[in-house]
C-alpha cells in the first residue's frame, strides 16, 4: 500500500464523525447547553453586581468551557470501542496516532468549536468588555483543542472500563492546570490593559506540543485498553 493511501482514511473518519454528530443533533448540543447553564449559575451564586461579575468573567467562562469539554470527552471513543471499529482502526495500515488525531479533530469541531464561539458572548453577558472578549476568543480557540487532545489520553486509558467517566476527570483535570492558567491569564492581562501575547504564545506552544505527543500517548493507551 502506498503512503498516500495509508492516510486516505483520515478525512473519511472526520467526515463520518461529523455526519454522526449531525444525525444526533441533540447529543451534540449538550456541551454548549452545559456551558450556558454553568455560566448562568455563577451570577446566581455571586450576586448580580456587574463589577464583580466582570472581574471573574474570564475565569468563569474558562472553567465552564473546561468542564463542558471534559463532559463531552466520554463520547470520543465510546461507540467505536463498543462496536469494534476501534479494533479495526488498530489493525489498519494507517498509523493509529493519525487515526486518533482525526477522531480528536472531529470531536473538537463538534464540541469544542461551539464553546469557542459561544464563550465570548457569554462573557459579555457577564459584563466583560468587548475588546477583552476578543482575547477570550483567541485564548479559547488555542486552548480548547489542547483540552480535547490531552483529554483523549485519559479517555484512551479508561475506555474499556464500566465507570470511566469520573475517572477521566480525576486523571485529566490536573493536566488541564497550565491551559487554564494561561487561558484565563491572557484574558486577565487584557482586561488589566496589559499585552496578552505572552500567554497566547505559551498556549500555542502547548498546542503544538500536544498535537505531536498526545495522539501517540492516546494510541498507546488505546492499544492497552483493547488488549
Amino acid at each position: 500500500m502506498s503512503p498516500q493511501s495509508a492516510f486516505a482514511p483520515l478525512p473519511a473518519i472526520i467526515r463520518r464523525d461529523l455526519l454522526l454528530a449531525m444525525r444526533r443533533r441533540g447529543e451534540s448540543l449538550t456541551p454548549l447547553l452545559f456551558l450556558l447553564m454553568v455560566v448562568s449559575l455563577f451570577p446566581l451564586g455571586l450576586g448580580p453586581d456587574p463589577v464583580k461579575l466582570g472581574a471573574s468573567a474570564a475565569a468563569i467562562v474558562w472553567v465552564a468551557a473546561l468542564l463542558s469539554v471534559l463532559l463531552s470527552l466520554e463520547r470520543l471513543f465510546r461507540s467505536d470501542f463498543d462496536d469494534g471499529s476501534l479494533e479495526q482502526f488498530a489493525l489498519s495500515p494507517c498509523p493509529l496516532p493519525a487515526l486518533v488525531l482525526s477522531k480528536v479533530v472531529a470531536h473538537w469541531l463538534v464540541s469544542g468549536l461551539p464553546v469557542v464561539l459561544a464563550g465570548p458572548i457569554l462573557a459579555m453577558m457577564l459584563n466583560l468588555p468587548g475588546h477583552v472578549a476578543w482575547t477570550l476568543l483567541h485564548s479559547l480557540a488555542l486552548g480548547t483543542p489542547i483540552l480535547s487532545l490531552v483529554g483523549s489520553i485519559g479517555v484512551g486509558l479508561t475506555v474499556g472500563l464500566r465507570r470511566g467517566g469520573i475517572l477521566v476527570s480525576l486523571l485529566v483535570l490536573p493536566l488541564y492546570v497550565p491551559i487554564l492558567i494561561f487561558g484565563a491569564g491572557a484574558v486577565q492581562a487584557a482586561s488589566g490593559g496589559l499585552p496578552s501575547d505572552a500567554h497566547l504564545l505559551l498556549l500555542g506552544a502547548q498546542l503544538a506540543l500536544a498535537l505531536v505527543l498526545a495522539p501517540i500517548a492516546t494510541a498507546a493507551a488505546l492499544r492497552i485498553s483493547m488488549s
Binding site: I153, L157, L171, P174, L175, A217, A220, A221, I224, S225
Partner: peptide, 9 residues
C-alpha cells in the same frame, strides 16, 4: 496504563 499516565504526567 499506569506507566502511560506516569509518562504523560
Amino acid at each position: 496504563a499506569v506507566a502511560i499516565l506516569a509518562l504523560v504526567g
